[in-house]
């Protein structure tokens, strides 16, 4: 069992606005220069955009104008929750899941990010037949952490 990665923070916005900023205006805050597929080429991505419906694509527009899909929306509840598959260039059965929830607090919204789904990752016996699972680099990290211990 690999624990999910979890991050939380409280922002001074009501849940509907926090949700809107996180999703519809993602390109305005996501560190496109550091964390994008374009960044892997030493470039800055032009855009990242979420198609606001279940099944919609989450798409990076790379520095050269080409687009690449990071994953698909699986939960779209404005003001409450957003979830997506975190797939990048992996096959469909090798995805992990990112879930963001927005809970009202007295002075704002608690935003909780959970990156989960590592249980699909095979143990060594399964790995030996060449089937492995990774949706995103974090998978490798977690496997690496346990491997190193």
């Amino acid at each position: 069992m690999t624990d999910p990665i979890e991050k939380t923070l409280v922002v001074p916005l009501p849940p509907d606005r926090a949700f809107d900023l996180f999703t519809n205006r993602m390109a305005s805050w996501w560190p496109l220069d550091k964390h994008s597929l374009s960044a892997g080429d030493g470039k800055v991505a032009q855009d990242v955009a979420i198609t606001p419906k279940v099944g919609g694509d989450v798409t990076e527009t790379k520095h050269n104008g080409t687009t690449v899909v990071w994953g698909k929306v699986v939960t779209w509840q404005p003001g409450k929750a957003f979830a997506m598959t975190w797939q990048l260039d992996r096959p469909e059965d090798e995805v992990t899941y990112l879930t963001i929830t927005f809970d009202a607090e007295d002075d704002g919204t608690r935003v909780t990010l959970i990156h989960d789904g590592w249980d699909a990752i095979p143990e060594p016996a399964q790995a030996s037949r060449g089937h492995y699972s990774t949706g995103w680099e974090f998978v490798l990290c977690d496997r690496y952490k346990s491997a190193a211990q």
Binding site: I5, V11, P12, L21, F22, R25, K34, H35, C141, K145
Partner: peptide, 30 residues
Amino acid sequence: PDRMRDLRDWMNSLWDDARGAFSRAAHDLA
């Protein structure tokens, strides 16, 4: 092991970066 720990730390920092960036944007918006 050391190298792997470094890698893990960096990965974790990606989400920290994203969290920090989102927090700043949210405060600006507020």
